[in-house]
Write a protein that binds this DNA or RNA. Structure first.
Lengths: 339, 339
DNA sequence: ACGCTGGGCTAAATCGATATAGCATTTTTT
DNA sequence: AAAAAATGCTATATCGATTTAGCCCAGCGT
C-alpha cells in the first residue's frame, strides 16, 4: 500500500518529476511551465489524490510542518484547553503538533527538547521549567523559532505570550481588600519563574497600595512536586498558623482546588469566615457552593496569539522579539463575598 | 546547525557509513563486524551524541516511530488524562504522539486520519466517531495497526480497549435502587455507539433485575453538539417533565456537570430530593457539596493497555484481535444518599 | 597450486521530493 | 543573418539512513 508519488504523476502526464514538483509547488509561472502542462498535472494530481510524502519533503527541505508543544502538564485543564486551541490554530496553517509534558522537571524538559529536535520540528512552543534558559538560548541559535508561553526568562530576549500575572494577582487582592477582608494570605508555588513571581508581586503591591500591612508570614510557597495529601496538609498547617487570617489567594488552579479541599476539611465557611480567590477558571470554581472567585486567563486568545507569533517567525523571522502580555479577567463569585 | 550524521561517524572511525549503520542498529554480529570496529563506532557515536535523523530513516524504512492519537476532545478531562498516560507509555518504547480532536464529528475524524496517514504514523489509537467504521476497515488493510478506545464497532474485528460500560451503568443504577430511589432517569448522549448503548443497556438491565418499572419517558438522549446553555435547558425541561422523579444517572462526565448545574438552578436538593450519579471522576464531583457519586474509569490502566496492545501489534502483528474490557469502579459519595 | 569457505567490510541503490544547472528550441534584437 | 534572449522543460545531485549485493583476503582441504 504505497502512496502516489510524484513519479506516478510524471509518468501519467508524460513529463519529468521536476516539472511536476514545480507545478505542485506553485512555481509554474516562475519556472515557465506552460499552462497546458500545468493544468494537466494539476488534474492528474487531483485525480490520484496525491499527497506529498512529508518525510521526503522534510528530508530535503528541512521543514517538517510540525511544531513541538511543551506544556507543564497536559492533564491540567488549563494546558489541555490551550493545547486544543493551539492544535486547531496550527492546523489552519497546515501544521501538526507533537506534544509533551514536563511535570515542571527540567530534566524531562531537556529530554523533550532533545526528541523534538531530532524529530526536526520547525518551531517550538514551550512552557519553560526553571534553568531551561540555557537550552532555550542554544536552541535559538539553531534558527528554529521558539515561543515561550505562560512564563519567560527576563534576561533572555525571546518571543513569548503570557498573561499579565501581576495584574491578575493585583486585581484579585485588591478585590479582597475592597470586600473588607483584613488579613489576606497567598498560597503559591515555590518557584522563581516569572508567572509565580509576578503573581506574588502583584499580591504584595495591591496590599501596599491599599495600606494593608504585609508580612512574610502571609506567604506560603509550596514545592510543585507534592501529592494531593501533602498539599492539603501543608495548606491546612499554614492556614491555621496565621492568626486573624480571613482571606487567601491561591496562585494556581490546582492550588485553588487543594485549597478548597483543605478549608472545607477544616470546617471553615468559605466566603464568610475566609475569603478565597483562585487562579484560572474551572467547572469546580463555577459550580462549587459557594462558587469561587478567580482570575481567568483568556485561553482562546492566548492560543491564537501563540500560533500567530510562531507562524510569523516561521515565515519571516525578525530580530525584534514579539512579546505579548494579555490581560486577565477577574470573575467575581461568592467565595469573596464577606457576609 | 546540522546534526551529526552517520557519515561524520564513518569518517572519524575510518569506516564506511554502511558499517556504522550496521553497528548502531545492533546488527554487528549478524553482519560480522569485528568487536574492535564495533566498539570504536559505538564510542564515537556516543561522544558525538549521534541521533539518527528520523526523517531519513522513516523515508527508507517506512517507520516513523510516531503514533497518531485521535480523541473526542483533548480539552475534556478524561481524554486529556488519558493522553498523558499514552504519551508517557509510548515514550517508553521510543514513540512520539501526534494528536487530534474529532469533536465527535466524522468529517473532522476523516480529516485527521488523512493527515496522520500521509504523515506516515506507524499506528493509530482512535476514539471513533459514528460511521468511521468504513475508514477504519480501509486503514486496516494498509497494515498499520489500529487500536480503538472508549468505543468500538461490534461488526468490525479490530483491536480495542474499552471500559465495561454496561457494568458501570448497571452498578450505578443498582446502587441508586438499593439506596431507595424509586424513579430513576438517565440522561445520555443521542448516539448509537457502543459506549453509550452499553450504558443505556446497563441502566435498563439494572432496573429490570430489581423489578423497578422502566419506561421510555425516563430516558433523555441529547445531541452532542449542544452548547452549555442548551444542555442546561434541555436537562431542566426533561427533569421537570418526569413526574415523581427522584434520581438521575448522567452517562458522561460533561452531562454530569451540566446536570449538577441544571438541578441546582431548579433549586432541588441533590441527594435528598434527587439522587445523582455521574460518569468519570472529576475534581468537581469530589468537592461538590454534596459530593457526587460516579462511575470511575481506570485511566492509568486503560492508557497502559492501549499502548501495550498497539506495541504488540507493531512488533508482531497477529490475526486475533486483542479486545480488552476493563472494569469500572463505582465511587459512592453523598449525591446518592437518600435522607 | 587450486578451489572453496567464511570473515570483515564496502559500493551503490533506494526511499520521495526539491534545487541547481543547463539543454534544446524558438523568438527577438540589431 | 548572426547574436542574444526568452521559452519550456529535464537530468542529476541531494537530504540521511538502510539494504542488497558483492569484493577482497586468509585459511583450509586435497
Amino acid at each position: 500500500m504505497k502512496g502516489i508519488s510524484i513519479k506516478d504523476i510524471a509518468k501519467q502526464a508524460g513529463v519529468s518529476p521536476t516539472t511536476v514538483s514545480f507545478v505542485l509547488n506553485g512555481k509554474a509561472k516562475e519556472k515557465r511551465i506552460s499552462d497546458q502542462v500545468s493544468k494537466k498535472i494539476q488534474k492528474i494530481a487531483a485525480r490520484l489524490k496525491y499527497k506529498p510524502n512529508q518525510l521526503a519533503r522534510g528530508l530535503r527541505t528541512g521543514k517538517t510542518k510540525t511544531i513541538g508543544l511543551i506544556v507543564e502538564d497536559i492533564a491540567n485543564n488549563f494546558f489541555a484547553s490551550l493545547a486544543k486551541v493551539v492544535e486547531d490554530e496550527a492546523d489552519k496553517y497546515g501544521y501538526k503538533v507533537l506534544y509533551g509534558s514536563t511535570e515542571d522537571n527540567t530534566e524531562k524538559a531537556k529530554g523533550l527538547l532533545e526528541v523534538l529536535k531530532y524529530r526536526q520540528v520547525d518551531g517550538y512552543i514551550i512552557t519553560p521549567t526553571k534553568n531551561l534558559d540555557k537550552e532555550i538560548e542554544l536552541l535559538e541559535t539553531a534558527a528554529k523559532p521558539i515561543v515561550l508561553m505562560d512564563r519567560y526568562f527576563p534576561h533572555v530576549n525571546s518571543h513569548y505570550v503570557v498573561l499579565d500575572n501581576f495584574k491578575g494577582a493585583y486585581d484579585a487582592t485588591s478585590h479582597l481588600v475592597k470586600q473588607g477582608y483584613k488579613k489576606i494570605a497567598i498560597v503559591t508555588i515555590a518557584s522563581d519563574q516569572t508567572q509565580m513571581k509576578d503573581r506574588l508581586d502583584g499580591y504584595i503591591a495591591a496590599l501596599k497600595d491599599h495600606q494593608v500591612p504585609f508580612s512574610k508570614t502571609l506567604v506560603k510557597r509550596l514545592p510543585f512536586e507534592l501529592d494531593r495529601e501533602k498539599f492539603n496538609n501543608e495548606i491546612k498547617k499554614f492556614l491555621t498558623s496565621v492568626k486573624g487570617l480571613d482571606a487567601v489567594f491561591f496562585a494556581t488552579n490546582y492550588l485553588g482546588i487543594y485549597g478548597i479541599e483543605s478549608i472545607r476539611s477544616l470546617g471553615w465557611q468559605i466566603g464568610k469566615e475566609i475569603g478565597l480567590v483562585g487562579f484560572d477558571d474551572h467547572d469546580l470554581f463555577r459550580l462549587h457552593s459557594p462558587s469561587i472567585t478567580c482570575v481567568s486567563q483568556p485561553i482562546g486568545e492566548i492560543g491564537k496569539k501563540i500560533v500567530e507569533v510562531l507562524m510569523k517567525e516561521l515565515n519571516q523571522p525578525s530580530d525584534v522579539p514579539q512579546q505579548i502580555v494579555l490581560p486577565p479577567e477577574l470573575i467575581i463569585r461568592e467565595s469573596s463575598k464577606l457576609a
